[in-house]
């Protein structure tokens, strides 16, 4: 076996691999763009069923907050995906400048007890919302709700401050 053959083969394979990795990068970016469109649409339509027009999506992945939907002339909306052992709770939440929830709409059918309870707790945390009734599940879900509300407030404050700086 010639050493130069081995070196040549290695370089050819490395070059081929680099091309395939680049193609994977394009596939990933395309999939990301399509997913952003789907997620933005799901969040906008949940909050305003008759929503029309383009909405910008920003992936955040901060705690239970998956991303933000920005639409001209409307309050920012966040997509919340809270995971618990048996499933996940999805909701779109519109927030005001300090990050308080103005409106929260669960996405899909919130069938199980955890989802229903999370929807009640998040809705109860909104501005002007009536105090939600209590449940035995609340103790284990309270930390999740508090964390998510704090994350939403921090993200929205950060966004509005960045806008003011511009």
């Amino acid at each position: 076996m010639d050493v130069s053959d081995k070196t040549r083969d290695t370089w050819i394979l490395a070059a081929a691999m680099a091309l395939i990795v680049a193609a994977s990068g394009f596939a990933s970016a395309y999939a990301s763009g399509q997913a952003a469109r789907q997620l933005a649409k799901a969040a906008s339509e949940a909050l305003v069923p008759s929503a029309r027009g383009e909405a910008d999506w920003t992936t955040l992945r901060e705690g239970s907050v998956l991303g933000r939907v920005d639409k001209r002339g409307e309050p920012a909306a966040y997509l919340v995906v809270a995971r618990y052992p048996d499933g996940e709770f999805r909701a779109a939440a519109s927030v005001d400048g300090d990050g308080s929830i103005l409106d929260l709409r669960p996405l899909g059918d919130s069938g199980d007890a955890y989802s229903k309870r999370l929807a009640a707790l998040f809705s109860g945390a909104g501005k002007g919302a009536a105090r939600a009734d209590a449940s035995t599940l609340d103790a284990s879900l309270k930390a999740l709700v508090t964390d998510t509300l704090e994350t939403l407030a921090a993200l929205e404050r950060g966004r509005t401050e960045a806008e003011d700086d511009d």
Binding site: S24, A27, S28, Y30, A31, S32, Q34, A35, Q38, L39, R61, L66, V81, R83, E88, R90
Partner: peptide
């Protein structure tokens, strides 16, 4: 990587999970 991209196209929520 390609499988994950395909999964993301199919269902973004499933991809995130």
């Amino acid at each position: 990587s390609l499988t994950a991209s395909a999964l993301r196209l199919f269902d973004p929520f499933l991809f995130e999970a």
